[in-house]
Amino acid sequence: MATRAKTSSNSNLLDPDFMARLERLEFVSRKIFAGKMRGERRSKRRGESVEFADHRPYVEGDDLRFLDWNIAARLDRFFIKQFLQEEDLHVSILLDASKSMEWGKPSKGHYAKQVAAALAYIGLSNHDRVSIYPYANGLVGELPGVRGKRLMAKVVDFLTTLEFEGAGNFTLACKQYAIRHPQRGIVLVLSDFFEKGGFETGLRYLLGRELDLYCIQVLSPEEIDPELAGDVRLVDVEDQDTAELTVSRALLNRYKQNLQAYCGSLKEYCTRRGISYLFTATDVPFDQLLLSYLRRRGLLK
């Protein structure tokens, strides 16, 4: 199946060995969510699974089927048996599809697609409901709730055909997402977070939904350690904004400082609000990111 998905999509997004190893992973969520369908996750809602959860005193109107007759016989009092209910998990991937993601070698966009595909695959393998929302200036597409591994091909197709276009507006995208998805679940944001409008407002929209949030910041090595020299005129690929500068050591140092401070502020913002933050460069092999790094950070188990 994985192989088919790979071949049919005719892309190098996921390689079959890697997908096989992904199968062994599954999502862990630090919170237990209520879902639309029963999945392989426990829910807070007491349900009809086989696993016993608790007793509670009988009140009128309760389903007599769950009455614990043994206790009634022994104590002459009525208790209702409660069972854990298993639910499916809603996993949303917010993928930055702005023009800036197409930059870098390898491009951040490609890397982000790989990560998104892998995460989607893991979600599908665990019968979770996976949605992918690429965004640029607002949400620009949607792969709504797919479930089941056999739909992986659909996911890969979606990602492969995805184009990086236009300027990013994270705030607008988050607002739209929050309106469209009242359900709780896991939200993964894959972006470079180079937002001229700031990331705070956007994240606040998501936080208001009590979602389990993961931010993965993807930067290319050229952004982390730029190799510029001489007098250059930098052109922003998104809005064609230009910056004329003469590159100097002091400027480079200052840039790195600023970058660090920016990432640091993002990380701190996330940590304070219970958002998991992850920083990765595109030269970190993405399978390593998934297999060891993400697992270590508690996203996978």
């Binding site: 993601m101 001229k196 952004e223 904004d241 910056a243 600023n258 970058l259």
Partner: peptide, 8 residues
């Protein structure tokens, strides 16, 4: 030179 963002 194109750059992902002139922001920083």
């Amino acid at each position: 030179m194109p750059i992902s963002s002139t922001f920083l």
